[in-house]
Structures are given as structure tokens and as C-alpha cells.
């Protein structure tokens, strides 16, 4: 491990995240991990890391970071107005961050969460096979907490191949986020807990992201979704993207820090490839839901998976 970055300012909420704690949800252990896993994986691939290496998730107002040696970095996800020593930093591209230079963010221009990967991977406390920070239990990453001023981030060992800079994601692959998103869902598993009218409302209404949204869930406000009898179900497991509807009829999209189980009926689940759109919605932004069938949703995950696999292989062969 080698010192890589010094935190001069931590920003609103900057945490170490990878793809989350897999395999322990049956113990109640929350998965955590990147809210926008696509952007983190692309950032890792561009600097030659494994896709699932840990990086920084930076929210709204990014941090201020000083390079302690020459680094190869890539910044993906939300456009938070990044600059290096005052010069705008290109995104979705690996670049060299020279020793002593300072990475700053001027604030959110598009999207909410940006991801910084460093060649070698960001080091952090590993708990149950993941470095993801889970704030509520205070585990993973930087002692289970957001970054603070004065923290030193270390990177994995190994020489920096400055030649690995300059890789970019092809322009047609770069997601475009706005204040409005249309998100595809697979209905269920408890769609029968809702009236036909309730399901129609959900699929035609426009929902606004409330300020109470966080890494646990995106809380929405809009046309009230009608239950048949009750919003309560016998508690069962939830997944990322599950759309829970409590008795007030206002949906919540469960995200990275969701509890493992829940007792509210789930009307639908956001499909995997559309989760980043939800993760990048700003407070006040709006979302509408469109139903697609399961085979089509799976086709989309499979295609994205093979794309990321190719990108990873290309990054590691150079």
C-alpha cells in the first residue's frame, strides 16, 4: 500500500465503495456498495483495475484531493465540475494526476454521484470481503465513515503505468443524466397487493425525488398508489431497485444501503441497467416508470455484463 491522495476538503459525502458485500445478506448484513455501479466499474476498467476494485463515491459537492505521487486516475458518473489545478478534467477517460496537483470540484452540473478510480485501487478496511463503507454500522473503507480533512488514501501496490492513461469510454456509451428520468421496471413480486388503478397510477404518474433520499433509498412523492387492502406483507428479502409502497402510497426505491428485508409491499423492481439513472437523480428531479418484461430486462443485463467484461480485459492487457 502506498499513500496516494490527501484529503484537503472532504466534500458533502465522500466514501470508499466497491460493488458491495455479497453473500452475507442472510445475516442481516447490508450490502452497501456503489450507488451507480456502472460508473464505478467503468472508472476501474479505464485505469486497468479489476472492475470491482474500491474507488471513491463523491456526492454533489466533491472533495478536494492532493496527489501524493504520480497517479493514473479516471473520473466517471456525475459531472461535478472537476478541475485539476484549475483546468477542467475530462471525464470517462484515464489521465495522469501529477504529484502535488490538486483535484477540485466546483459542484454538481449533471447527476449526483461521481466515482474516482485510481490505478492500483483505493485501499480500505475490508469487512466480509468488501471495502464498501456502510455508515450505519461504521464498517469498511475509511474506518466506516465518510472521508475527513487530513485523511490519507492509500492505493494498492504496484508501479504506475503512465502509459495506461488516455483510455476513454466511447462517446455513445457515456450515459446522459438530467433532472428527469424514465426508468424501466419489472412488476412484482407483490403487485397483487395493489389495485389495477394503483398499478396504472404507478406506471403513468410522474414522481419527484424528495430531500429525504439517501444511500438507503430514493423517496418519491407523487400520485398516490392505491393498495387493495394493506401495505403490509409478511417481511421478506428486498433487492436493490425494489419499489416499496408504504401505506401513504408514496413509493421508495431501495438503493445500496437498503435493509436486507422489508415489510412493505413491493410493486416493482427497477431493472439493473437503469439503477444508475435512479442513483443520479437530484433532489427535486422527477422519475416515471415503464414496465418491461423479464426476458428483455435480463437481455439488457447480459449485454452490459459482456461489455464491461470486454472493457475490463482491454484495460488489463495494456
Amino acid at each position: 500500500m502506498r499513500p496516494a491522495l490527501e484529503v484537503l476538503q472532504p466534500g458533502l459525502l465522500t466514501t470508499v465503495q466497491d460493488l458491495g458485500r455479497v453473500g452475507f445478506q442472510h445475516t442481516g448484513m447490508v450490502a452497501a456498495g456503489a450507488m451507480d455501479a456502472f460508473s464505478l466499474q467503468v472508472a476501474n476498467c479505464l485505469v486497468g483495475n479489476r472492475r470491482g476494485a474500491a474507488g471513491l463515491e463523491m456526492t454533489m459537492t466533491g472533495p478536494e484531493l492532493k496527489a501524493l505521487e504520480d497517479l493514473v486516475i479516471a473520473l466517471c458518473g456525475a459531472d461535478l465540475g472537476a478541475t485539476v489545478d484549475g483546468v477542467p478534467l475530462p471525464m470517462w477517460k484515464s489521465v495522469v494526476l501529477e504529484r502535488g496537483s490538486i483535484l477540485r470540484f466546483r459542484g454538481s452540473r449533471r447527476g449526483v454521484r461521481a466515482y474516482l478510480a485510481v490505478a492500483g485501487g483505493i485501499c480500505g478496511e475490508d469487512v466480509m470481503g468488501s471495502k464498501s463503507t456502510y455508515l450505519r454500522a461504521g464498517i469498511g473503507g475509511m474506518h466506516g465513515r465518510p472521508l475527513r480533512r487530513g485523511d490519507i488514501l492509500e492505493r494498492g501496490d504496484g508501479p504506475v503505468h503512465l502509459s495506461r492513461s488516455g483510455r476513454r469510454l466511447s462517446a455513445d456509451r457515456i450515459p446522459r443524466w438530467g433532472k428527469r428520468a424514465e426508468v424501466r421496471v419489472v412488476l412484482g413480486p407483490q403487485e397483487e397487493a395493489f389495485t389495477d388503478e394503483g398499478i396504472r397510477t404507478f406506471l403513468t404518474g410522474e414522481y419527484q425525488v424528495t430531500p429525504q433520499s439517501d444511500r438507503m433509498g430514493i423517496r418519491l412523492q407523487g400520485p398516490r398508489i392505491e393498495h387493495r387492502e394493506t401495505a403490509d406483507i409478511l417481511s421478506d428479502a428486498v433487492a436493490m431497485g425494489a419499489v416499496q409502497v408504504p401505506a401513504d402510497g408514496q413509493p421508495i426505491v431501495l438503493m445500496a444501503d437498503r435493509q436486507t428485508t422489508g415489510g412493505y409491499a413491493k410493486i416493482a423492481n427497477v431493472i439493473s441497467v437503469d439503477l444508475p439513472k435512479v442513483a443520479q437523480l437530484p433532489p427535486g428531479g422527477t422519475v416515471s416508470f415503464r414496465q418491461i418484461d423479464l426476458p428483455s430486462a435480463q437481455e439488457l443485463v447480459i449485454r452490459q455484463e459482456s461489455f464491461l467484461k470486454r472493457l475490463e480485459a482491454a484495460g488489463r492487457s495494456g
Binding site: V186, G188, P189, Q190, D236, A237, V238, A239, M240, G241, A242, K266, N269, V270, I271, S272, L294, A297, Q298, L300, V301
Partner: peptide
């Protein structure tokens, strides 16, 4: 048996 999204089943 019900799908819970595209990567889980209940």
C-alpha cells in the same frame, strides 16, 4: 415463484 427484479427470485 416471483421475480424480484432481473437478478433475484422469491
Amino acid at each position: 415463484v416471483k421475480p424480484l427484479g432481473d437478478s433475484a427470485v422469491t
